[in-house]
């Protein structure tokens, strides 16, 4: 039996009425509203304090905002030798890893998409497996091997370990994209005289470009932020930006360094968002695919 609840009692008076309708709104949308508030607090809260810290000259408890703003810490941050070295290194490293990953993974994902061979499914899933479990076990065994190969503390070692991390993304996204290209479109290009390579470069590749750029960007950003592997394999001689970040946060009492560096580290993410948005809205995409 369900009992019929009387509608919320009509209380005379403006405030009471408003309160009642507010309560009704909460009852209707309560969960969504609550979630939104929590989300804002959780995401924007720390961001807010990081941004403030990055531009704070002096900020003492219990004030809600810094007492003094300025750029002195920016100068000091970039004057530090370790940061001036790690930032360009990290960017170049991420570019190299992304490029290598593309060179290795794109032909592989094309094969996954176009060929039927034994163990195809299993192999595809194996890339997922490396990401489905905590990486640490994998890293430990890789570290043991790298140690024997004298790769610990070398750039090559860091590139290798980061390549492992890119495999899932750079295989799965392009494979799905290649599968979306109708084989008949490639046959039509062969038919007018194009070689296999040309068909791939001029027909297949342009058609998967949106998905591919997304995969490339995600790979770049992921690699740029990757710290676990770089920390384990790279130290003490190879220091990437996120690794440096760890030591800055752990060993420095000056909060501003950490705040400024994390602001800088957000740049690739912002770039990713902007490019992704342009890709989705881009004229060539919509014209070509009738989106």
């Amino acid at each position: 039996m369900t009992t019929l609840q009387p509608a919320s009692p009509v209380v005379p008076g403006f405030w009471a009425g408003t309160a009642a309708s507010f309560r009704a709104m909460i009852r209707r949308n309560g969960f969504g509203l609550l979630a939104l508030i929590v989300l804002i607090l959780v995401i924007l809260g720390p961001l807010y304090s990081v941004v403030l810290w990055a531009f704070a000259e002096r900020w003492q408890y219990p004030s809600l905002i810094p007492q003094e703003f300025g750029f002195t810490f920016w100068e000091r941050t970039f004057a530090r030798a370790d940061i001036a070295e790690a930032l360009p290194f990290s960017i170049i490293l991420s570019l190299v890893v992304t490029l290598l990953s593309a060179v290795i993974c794109l032909p592989a994902s094309y094969a996954f998409a176009r060929m039927k061979f034994r163990g195809r499914q299993l192999l595809l899933l194996s890339f997922l497996a490396t990401n489905a479990f905590p990486r640490f076990g994998l890293y430990i065994s890789i570290a043991v091997i790298f140690f024997r190969l004298n790769l610990i503390g070398t750039v090559q070692g860091v590139i290798l370990i980061q390549l492992v991390n890119t495999l899932l993304l750079m295989i799965w996204i392009p494979t799905a994209a290649f599968q979306g290209v109708d084989k008949a479109l490639e046959e039509a290009a062969l038919d007018v005289g194009a070689s296999r390579l040309r068909v791939f470069m001029q027909i297949t590749l342009p058609m998967v470009m949106p998905a591919l750029s997304a995969a490339l960007l995600l790979t770049f950003v992921n690699t740029f932020y990757e710290a676990q592997g770089a920390l384990l394999i790279g130290l003490p001689r190879v220091v990437t930006m996120p690794v440096l970040m760890y030591s800055l946060i752990n060993s420095q009492l000056i909060v501003q360094y950490g705040a400024i560096v994390s602001l800088v580290l957000w740049l690739p993410s912002l770039l990713l968002l902007i490019v992704a948005q342009r890709l989705l809205r881009g004229g060539y995409l919509t014209a070509g695919f009738g989106v």
């Binding site: 479109l185 046959e187 039509a188 290009a189 038919d191």
Partner: peptide, 15 residues
């Protein structure tokens, strides 16, 4: 020296 017209639409969408 053959050329084919397919049953499916096979114009290249990005061209």
């Amino acid at each position: 020296p053959t050329a084919m017209v397919f049953q499916k639409y096979t114009l290249w969408p990005h061209m």
